[in-house]
Structure formats: structure tokens, C-alpha cells
Write a protein that binds this DNA or RNA. Structure first.
Length: 384
DNA sequence: GTTGAGCGTT
């Protein structure tokens, strides 16, 4: 069986039939879809009764129809998150521009080939370029008695170093961390995310926060819970690296059933919220809270998870519920991307007959973004 | 069952 997919307003010229995996679970593979619609992250369709858009559920790279079966006559419309396909630079797109970058290590000519991964995950070349360069790497966990030479000896095994230093206080006492930098990017790839031993201590090498991203760390980080002890950092790396470039993986020792994975980019984070199956275990992915409570909310208006939670308690107090939610719960943010506003949220939730007294609107300051979705709302008893 | 150690200098 096939479903018909076309960009909005292009049903006449460019409707493409996409196969449904009938052997398995009747889902449509997101990668099959992205082969035809670059940059697509979900599908939507018009609800024939109400006329409003409905989102198709996306889980683990597969699209599931809310009613359990696809309508062969419907036209499904791709939902894109940024950037739009026309903005994805493919090989040849801007070949006449000189894109040679100057770095302290010489000239690097970036390759301009969009991989499937990049297209699927809306990774653009700026991300890749930034990530392909050698940067100073932070070395954490250095013994206080280790010297520069000890550190150097360990890391020279992987290639020529252009920097190796241990940070010290004004008395010359080691602070237990330092920085290294390689001449070649391959060496950087070889040491990062691996365990190293110096003077009987294991040390970690990471991209330092100052180089990781322009976005605050916690917006790029997921919080994984209900995680069995058997899941290791390697398992998390293997599983989550398909969604983006990782800058950090953390599992406390001894294990406490949770962990963190940090990406280079915050944009993938929202799409990962919910259940995932890793090594046969179902784990829950949530947002990481900021490590310090002293952040200024106005600095990061798009990342105020705690505020979003209290907003939705606001609804619960007011709303009587006339009807149960539909069979599936499309993510609000998959339809409307990142920036939200009160009016648009209320319009969206009206399709579920959630009563929205005007007083409730006051609980939604317009500068705040809501990350919560209808599944979470249902779990919290809004519609029970 | 549910939130992380530590991040500099030019």
C-alpha cells in the first residue's frame, strides 16, 4: 500500500506515493519519506470532520497514523522543521564560492556533501564545519600530582599535540584539569569519548563548554530516566548518536537509573522526548534542568521547562473536559516548531475540546515556550 | 526509582 504525500499547494504537480510497511506495523518510515522530502520531520493531514490539521505520530523514525490505518485517498503534507529543504546546501549549490576556511592549523577545504543523516536531522554545514575543526579539548580528572609531561605522554599516542597544559592556581597547585589540542582532526576524534589513564586515574577528554555551542548546555541536553544499570555510556552513544553529534554522555557512578546525553545542537532535543528502547529496555527521555538555579529566565525564553509545567497546572484547575482526546496525540511542537504563542496554542488545543476559559490565558505569558505535549497532558490527568 | 564534579586563555 502507498500513501500520497505532497507539499502544501503542490498536490497537482508533485504528489509522491510513499510505501507503507505493511509487513511490519503499518508504519511509514521517516527515512523513506526524507528521501523524497528533504528535511521533513513529520506529516500532517486535514481531519475530514473538523477540517483542522492533524499530526501523524512519529516514534523512533516511524510514522503512525492516529486512527491505525492510512487513508489511501488523503493527501498527507510534510511538516518541516528548520531549515526548509531549499535552504539545505547540497553539493554544487554554492560551489563557485570559496569556502576555504582559515584556521590556526592551516587551510581546510570542507567537503560539501549532504549525508542522509544531515538531511534527516536538519544538520547544516555550519554545524559540521564547526565540528570538524581541532579545538582545545578539556582534560578532566587529572591527578593533582600529574605533570604536563605525564599528560603529554598519554595523549601523544594519538597524534601530534600543539597544546598541553595543566591549569594551576596562583600557588602552582594543579586544579585537576587541563587542555590539549591536536594538530590533526583525526587525532581529536580518536581521543574524544574514550577513557584514558594517567597516574592511576581515569581522565575524560571533552569538547569544552566554551567551544561546544552558542546555546546553553542544558538546552542541548536530555535527561534519561528509568535506565537499567546494564545500559552503559557506550550504549547511549550508540543509540543517540544517530540523532546528532554528541558532546557529552554522563552516567553517575554508581549508577542511579538516570543519565545525560548532550548534543551540539538543541534542535533535536524536543523531538526525542518520550520513550525509547535501548538494548531492549524502555527508557524515558526528558529535558535536563539547568544545573544551577541562578539562571535568568529572560536570557533563554525558549527553554523554560519549569514554567511550562506550572502553566499546564493552570489549565487543569480551570478546565472541564467535554471529550476524550483522539487516539493519538500529535506533538504540538512538531506542527508549529519552536516559537509558540498563546493564541496559536489555544487554537491548536481546541481540536481536542479542551475548554479554555479566557482567564487561563493569563497563565501563558507570550514569551514562554511550551515543551509539553498532549501525551504528557493526558498522563498528567488533564483528560482523565 | 527522576537532575550531572570539575571548564581557560588568547
Amino acid at each position: 500500500m502507498f500513501i500520497r504525500v505532497a507539499d502544501e499547494g503542490k498536490q497537482n504537480e508533485e504528489t509522491i506515493e510513499i510505501p507503507v510497511d505493511g509487513d511490519a506495523d503499518g508504519s511509514v518510515s521517516l527515512s523513506t519519506l526524507t528521501a523524497q522530502f528533504q528535511g521533513v520531520s513529520a506529516l500532517k493531514y486535514r481531519n475530514s470532520e473538523s477540517g483542522v490539521w492533524r499530526g501523524v505520530r512519529v516514534v523512533d523514525g516511524k510514522l503512525y497514523h492516529p486512527d491505525g490505518e492510512w487513508d489511501p485517498n488523503a493527501i498527507y503534507v510534510p511538516v518541516y522543521s528548520k531549515p526548509m529543504p531549499s535552504e539545505i546546501k547540497r553539493k554544487g549549490f554554492d560551489e563557485n564560492q570559496d569556502e576555504t576556511m582559515s584556521t590556526s592549523l592551516g587551510q581546510i577545504k570542507p567537503q560539501r556533501v549532504a549525508t542522509d543523516f544531515m538531511i534527516n536531522n536538519n544538520v547544516d554545514y555550519d554545524d559540521i564545519d564547526r565540528n570538524r575543526r581541532c579545538v582545545d579539548l578539556i582534560v578532566l580528572g587529572i591527578s593533582y600530582r600529574s605533570l604536563e609531561d605525564d599528560v603529554k605522554k598519554c595523549f601523544e599516542e594519538f597524534g601530534e599535540l600543539v597544546l598541553c597544559e595543566i591549569k594551576r592556581d596562583s600557588n602552582g597547585q594543579s586544579r585537576g584539569f587541563g587542555f590539549i589540542r591536536y594538530k590533526n582532526y583525526e587525532s581529536q576524534l580518536a581521543v574524544i569519548n574514550k577513557r584514558h589513564f594517567i597516574d592511576g586515574r581515569h581522565v575524560d577528554v571533552k569538547i569544552p563548554e566554551s567551544k561546544a555551542s552558542h546555546e546553553p548546555e542544558y538546552t542541548r541536553k536530555i535527561f534519561i530516566t528509568h535506565m537499567p544499570d546494564a545500559i552503559t555510556t557506550d550504549d547511549l552513544r550508540q543509540y543517540f548518536s544517530k540523532y546528532g553529534t554528541l558532546t557529552d554522555i554522563y552516567i553517575p557512578k554508581p549508577a542511579r537509573s538516570f543519565g545525560f546525553v548532550t548534543f551540539t545542537d538543541s534542535s533535536i532535543v524536543r523531538s526525542l522526548l518520550g520513550k525509547h528502547v535501548i538494548k531492549g529496555c524502555t527508557v524515558t527521555v526528558g529535558l535536563a534542568e539547568p544545573k544551577t538555579k541562578s539562571y535568568n529566565i529572560n536570557d533563554y525564553p525558549s527553554s523554560t521547562f519549569k514554567k511550562a509545567k506550572s502553566d499546564h497546572r493552570g489549565i487543569r484547575t480551570f478546565a472541564p473536559y467535554a471529550a476524550p482526546p483522539p487516539a493519538a496525540y500529535p506533538y504540538y511542537h512538531q506542527q508549529f516548531e519552536q516559537a509558540s504563542n498563546t493564541d496559536r496554542m489555544f487554537t491548536y488545543f481546541q481540536q481536542y475540546n479542551v475548554s479554555t476559559p479566557s482567564a487561563t490565558k493569563e497563565a501563558f505569558p507570550t514569551h514562554q515556550q511550551s515543551y509539553w505535549n498532549t501525551t504528557e497532558a493526558a498522563a498528567d490527568g488533564i483528560w482523565q
